[in-house]
Design a protein around this nucleic acid. Structure first.
Lengths: 258, 258
DNA sequence: CGGGGGCTTGAAACTGATCAAAACGCGTGG
DNA sequence: CCACGCGTTTTGATCAGTTTCAAGCCCCCG
């Protein structure tokens, strides 16, 4: 079931007819495994296929003013370079955070399934619109929020997106990031990210150990982030009604917690 | 010729058949004039039509952490709420910067012209992809560039976009912004914007008087901004080969220069 | 002529950056 | 099994860019 997550994602986001689901399920693809840090696409490439993330996380990034700015993360079910279908040249790099697997699907085939189905075209278009909404949210994040809010917002967003594809486990999720990655995404220095994470832990909002994030008090974290999930435009909310992943207090064990 | 700029823009961005151009030209619309500061759409609205900017500038904005963050500007030919076609609820406000005029076109009609023409669907989709590319660029701008680079980049972007619809006049263009607007767009304080603009002037990069910006040395400005027009994905470049709008030195007259 | 919005300036305060170094964890090879 | 090395996290100290506060000015508009 290679495209299961993609179908689930488009389903959650736009609704799909059974026919369309079948078309997607039947798309020919090539699997690829990426190691941590490996590049899938480099700036300037003109790919002839688009890729679907199957597992793991990819980042879109580019160096600006000798800083490595990450402008987006892509998780299972996302298509980080869907737009190369219409805008052929990549102006960023796609890098794998930790190990990940992706499927590549040729533009030709994508065009074919879409030409036969307005519903699919709309679904893909809608998908790009949602990612545009995410970009806008990042603009607001970087432009207006202080460090703690920025990081909190990023975590809230990732939690919801992972939840939508079934990768949130009772408020905790796997996140193969280093603190440097957070810094690159949030426009902060590593040092400051480190201290801000400590504050998030001290406040009892999160725990973060062995590349696993635990949201201890999701409601308070979302408050700190001024987060509203609305911009992610999920059709149906699969979020469990209980907001606290694990409210059990554990004090602040120290150690390398990321 | 109400949709002239829109057609020009889509033409520049995706190419259009004569048929498609005719369809666009025939779209029924309602004209509206907006005064400076007036809101076209408020957060939470669910419009049943999309709007085309005819003249002036609109901003998309929202308050975050009691800051008013602008996430995008829209100029003649742009459709700031095209996405309400697929994502019905607006999560931002659209505000007119200075006086502007817009045409609103019903979703129903847009759907109709698109259903009959894959080319038009692609053109509109491509348009949303370009705006997504602009959002990404803003993320990088806010996340990675220092104040001077941020403002310079914003000016470079606006110059190219205005140029594409014929509103750049020998390196100068009309910009109905206050310094507060720049601050809101760039995630800076007004005070700092003021000082940074002074520096841009001192460096002989721009002049800014009476709501008119003059790029004195476009090449150096683009360097300072690390600007590359590629992300705007214009099919044909209409940029004149001469890079300096007006290199005439005038010293630094002071006064209210914005 | 008065008021207000926008621009400008100065001084002080702060958030976050930079520099530097130490500690930790982990994989590798001896 | 230990030693080494490297990447990552942590901590401390200093520095810089930017914000905030406060006030003054200019110009337009009523």
């Amino acid at each position: 079931m290679p495209h299961r997550k993609l179908i689930a994602r488009l389903q959650a986001v736009a609704g799909l007819s059974e026919q369309d689901q079948a078309k997607l399920a039947g798309m020919p693809y090539k699997l690829k495994t990426l190691d941590g840090g490996e590049y899938l696409v480099r700036e300037g490439d003109s790919p002839t296929s688009s890729t679907v993330v199957m597992s793991g996380v990819l980042s879109r990034q580019r160096v600006i003013s000798e800083r490595n700015q990450i402008s987006s993360f892509y998780i299972a079910g996302d298509m980080p370079d869907l737009h190369t279908l219409h805008l052929p040249v990549m102006d960023h790099e796609l890098r794998s955070m930790g190990r990940s697997t992706v499927a590549s699907v040729s533009h030709a085939y994508l065009r074919e399934v879409m030409s036969g189905s307005p519903g699919l075209t709309q679904a893909f278009w809608r998908e790009t619109l949602i990612h545009a909404a995410i970009y806008r949210e990042w603009i607001e994040n970087l432009g207006a929020r202080p460090a703690l809010g920025r990081i909190a917002h990023l975590l809230c967003e990732l939690a919801v997106r992972l939840e939508l594809v079934g990768l949130l486990d009772n408020g905790s999720f796997h996140l193969p990031f280093t603190q440097q990655d957070i810094a690159d995404a949030c426009g902060l220095s590593v040092v400051h990210v480190n201290r801000t994470l400590q504050e998030l832990r001290r406040e009892g909002l999160i725990e973060w150990r062995d590349h696993t994030v635990q949201l201890l008090d999701r409601a308070r974290l979302e408050d700190a982030a001024e987060f509203s999930r609305q911009y992610l435009h999920a059709l149906e909310t699969t979020r469990s009604p209980v907001r606290n992943g694990n409210a059990g207090e554990r004090g602040n064990k120290r150690g390398n917690v990321i």
